[in-house]
Nucleic acid binder design. Structure first.
Lengths: 214, 214
DNA sequence: TGTACATCAGTGAACGCGCGTTCACTGATGTAC
DNA sequence: TGTACATCAGTGAACGCGCGTTCACTGATGTAC
């Protein structure tokens, strides 16, 4: 067995991308950054050098695809926002459209699960200081989440459920409550499990939607 | 005017404490650390070297009073917890004891104001990763806050108010909601003012305490 | 009253570390003629 | 078909910075005799 180089240093080696496909490294960087953020937590765990180490490249190589660290973080965030939106959307569609309350619960459940499964990403998304020039209106992803919940609550009202708050306020109540609960879990993760979080949020939803149908 | 040394370099000079009063520097360090945390924000703003700079001493001098950075942070935290408890207690006592709902609102108002006035401290308190051996039961300061609110809600119930949740759950709902609201404000401070936060929390309290007395 | 010594408050200089970023480079692959 | 050159993917080494921490020290004030 003279020539079996591929298991020699499995992690160290990295064959460079073929001509004209340099863009692929950009994806690799984002993927590794995301994985790193999942394993550790907090924005401070996301460093240029750490990502380079994870990908198996030189730190300098990152600068061919991202102007600076802020741009790398922005890239990760953009990916995360899409993931969260997809998770909530998918959860809603898994519930029959007539079950309007079920769709509210499903979406908030997906939200909490995302936060619990990806603490580093969630903290980055929520704590990220935006110094950028205010992104265009509905580009603010949390605004989108709240609007999504508002629509879900409006559908509840239209279906005859009595809300104890107007749909827009109800959406904020539930979203803010969920965020608060999840943030507390993040600061002391071992104390409780996901079910307790889901329980809290479902209680909150029940508080906002007067218990029985009209 | 030959001898006016005191305005020469007002910030640089610092006369050492007299014999036997070395403990006073400990207080100075804590005070400066707290001020630093008020001006900047987040635990990462609190550095040994930064505090030393603020006090006007050498970094090494801090180690005569604190074993390491963690102990300094612990000192600041302890002070903060006392401040928060005092603020909530004071706010409660400023309201007549018969006004049980008013006391609920006053205490949560004080909580929110503390969080808004001291973002750095609040973030430190909430996000501080405890690696220490689990402090003794009720030493966990947030547990104390929740318990305080639970008692306030129990007094509401005893006074004849109908609660939509048991007092312990109501306390958690309101506390978690307030934390969520405040945390969101921290991540985007200029968007809103204190009144909006207080408004949200009062709405939440009204949601939990069924609107009119029995 | 004088003097040797202990105790005190606080320091200067250095250590090793990891970070973000820059810059001139290397070597492989394509293209023009 | 061969060769000079351009373009590409990616690198090695260094920069300056701020951090937490250590260690031998300095100089003033107290105490024992």
């Amino acid at each position: 067995m003279p020539a079996m180089p591929e298991d020699a240093d499995l992690t160290l080696q990295r064959t460079r991308n073929p001509w004209g496909q340099g863009e692929r490294l950009r994806e690799e960087i984002l993927v590794s950054a995301a994985r790193l953020l999942s394993e550790l937590d907090g924005e401070e765990a996301l460093t240029i050098r750490g990502v380079a180490r994870a990908v198996g490249i030189a730190p300098a190589s990152i600068y061919q695809h991202f102007a600076d660290k802020a741009e790398l973080v922005r890239g990760v965030l953009q990916h995360d926002y899409r993931m969260l939106a997809a998770a909530m959307g998918g959860a809603a569609e898994a519930v029959p459209a007539e079950d309007v309350v079920g769709r509210v619960r499903a979406q908030m459940g997906a939200y909490c699960r995302f936060a619990v499964d990806n603490p580093g990403h969630y903290r980055l998304m929520m704590n990220h200081r935006r110094s950028q020039p205010e992104p265009a209106e509905g580009d603010r992803p949390l605004v989108l989440v709240v609007r999504r919940m508002q629509e879900a609550f409006e559908r509840c009202a239209a279906a005859g459920y009595r809300l104890r708050q107007p749909a827009d306020r109800a959406a904020i109540t539930v979203f803010v409550g969920a965020h608060g609960r999840v943030a507390l879990w993040h600061s002391d993760p071992d104390e409780t499990e996901v079910d307790r979080i889901l329980g809290f949020v479902n209680e909150l939803i029940s508080l906002v939607i007067a218990d029985s149908r009209n």
